[in-house]
């Protein structure tokens, strides 16, 4: 009896989750492909920003660009959003490289021992 109830609850839950997934996907399809592209670039940029942060090398400029991109997306200015997000993503990658390339301490030549 108990297992049956549990099973039905589970089934309901699965149906609900699956249902939401389908609606979301449908929504995305219905959405302007430019908006989808902008959101994708923003997500990519945020991932790059976090990657830079993981090597303690994040720039202050990157988060600001992402915020601006999000604001542009909200306003429906997808081209601006995409452009800014791309810039942010590029910055994240460069900042990561900057941190990663200095994983080992390299003493500068101007300090003499």
């Amino acid at each position: 009896m108990r297992t049956k109830r549990l099973l039905s609850v589970l089934l309901l839950a699965v149906t609900f989750v699956a249902g939401t997934g389908v609606t979301l996907a449908a929504d995305a399809k219905a959405e302007n492909p430019k908006a989808v592209k902008a959101q994708m670039e923003i997500d990519k940029a945020d991932k790059a920003r976090k990657k830079a942060a993981s090597v303690e090398s994040e720039w202050t400029t990157t988060g600001k660009l992402i915020k601006k991109a999000q604001a542009a997306l909200k306003k429906g200015d997808y081209d601006t959003a995409t452009r800014l997000a791309k810039q942010a993503g590029e910055q994240g990658e460069i900042a990561y490289e900057q941190g990663a390339s200095q994983k080992e301490l390299r003493m500068p030549s101007y300090l003499k021992y």
């Binding site: 303690e56 090398s57 720039w59 202050t60 400029t61 910055q91 900042a95 900057q98 941190g99 200095q102 301490l105 390299r106 003493m107 500068p108 101007y110 300090l111």
Partner: peptide, 21 residues
């Protein structure tokens, strides 16, 4: 010490860039 000598930020400075070099 590592933090001090690591170049960071968009301007690419370490503490040492300004305060030693």
């Amino acid at each position: 010490k590592k933090f001090y000598f690591t170049r960071r930020g968009q301007l690419n400075f370490s503490c040492a860039t300004c305060h030693v070099q």
